[in-house]
């Protein structure tokens, strides 16, 4: 009994000390509280609302909204979203890598070059969508103008679902490659140039230096770019809306199309929940594969 009381008081001593530390930190947490509360109030709660509403039909729990989703084009729109996202990411990664590697080298006009490739970062998506709608017009259009000027046959850009998606995934490069290039450039510039020199003295060719030094050095940054860009790629909305409208559907245009009619609004909640799940699954996948270490740091 006596011993126990003694132990109790000792424990409470530790607890008190811990409380003191916590209380010191609590003040600092208070500074961050408005920002955190803002984000929870305007982001987590709405997201929960959408998920909750998607399971309601006439005020009762039901899976009805999900059971009719396929007839609204769910599977095709998921497939299309994946095609556009993966394709756009690949295009952006390749272009960004080329830009970042070029920017590492000294050459005349490098300042102007970096300005030209970075400026589209500030372009509004809707402006980019508008310009690319002028470039890829079926009849005429600037892309066909270039082709015809060089003696090629004009192309009907919007001729099938696949070519429509192709135009969207390509057009996305303009605004979004600069960010990826800046991320990769940050990684490349951290590699010591002596490493390349040593490798070429040892007889490693350009390709070997690329696969053995460059790629490993920027692998973690590629996974970060994949996370940051990949998530926004699943969210593209303005670009497909302007370029292809609702045919073929991607998840976001499916959500919006059903949201804009009051009768099908619950359907859009169910589709939004599906999109939320896909994005969460993708983020967890990328973090597990490559970014986890950086993320935890």
């Amino acid at each position: 009994m006596h011993i126990r009381m003694h132990m109790d008081s000792e424990f409470s001593g530790i607890r008190e000390r811990r409380f003191k530390i916590t209380r010191k930190y609590l003040v600092y947490v208070l500074f961050a509280l408005p920002a955190i509360a803002y984000v929870i109030g305007l982001s987590i709660i709405p997201a929960i609302t959408v998920v909750y509403q998607s399971f309601l039909v006439a005020g009762k729990f039901s899976l009805y909204n999900y059971s009719v989703l396929p007839s609204y084009g769910l599977y095709a729109s998921i497939g299309n979203t994946l095609i556009v996202s993966v394709g756009a990411l690949l295009i952006q990664l390749i272009l960004a890598l080329a830009i970042a590697m070029v920017m590492m080298k000294p050459f005349a006009g490098s300042k102007i070059f970096s300005s030209i490739v970075i400026i589209p970062f500030g372009i509004s998506t809707i402006v980019s969508a508008f310009i690319f709608s002028l470039i890829f017009t079926n009849v005429g259009g600037f892309a066909n103008g270039v082709l015809v000027a060089f003696g090629f046959k004009p192309v009907v850009w919007f001729s099938s679902s696949i070519s429509d998606l192709g135009v969207v995934m390509f057009s996305d490069f303009w605004k979004n490659t600069p960010l990826v290039a800046l991320i990769l450039y940050g990684g490349l510039s951290s590699v010591s140039p002596t490493l390349y020199e040593a490798a070429s003295v040892d007889g490693a060719g350009a390709f070997k230096r690329f696969t053995h030094i460059t790629l490993p050095a920027i692998a973690p940054l590629i996974s970060i770019a994949l996370l940051v860009r990949g998530v926004s790629e699943f969210n593209i909305f303005a670009l497909p809306l302007v370029l292809i409208g609702y045919h073929p559907l991607i998840l976001n245009t499916l959500i919006y199309e059903n949201y804009s009619t009051l009768a099908t609004r619950p359907i859009s909640y169910a589709a939004a929940t599906v999109l939320l799940l896909i994005i969460m699954a993708y983020s967890i996948f990328v973090l597990k594969i490559g970014g986890a270490k950086q993320y935890a740091k």
């Binding site: 984000v39 959408v50 999109l275």
Partner: peptide, 22 residues
């Protein structure tokens, strides 16, 4: 880092999904 990570996870929420209830 936990707080920052939390804020960025929020940023991954699809814009359209959040915009509609807002």
């Amino acid at each position: 880092n936990k707080i920052i990570a939390f804020l960025f996870i929020i940023n991954m929420m699809p814009g359209l999904v959040i915009a509609i209830p807002i």
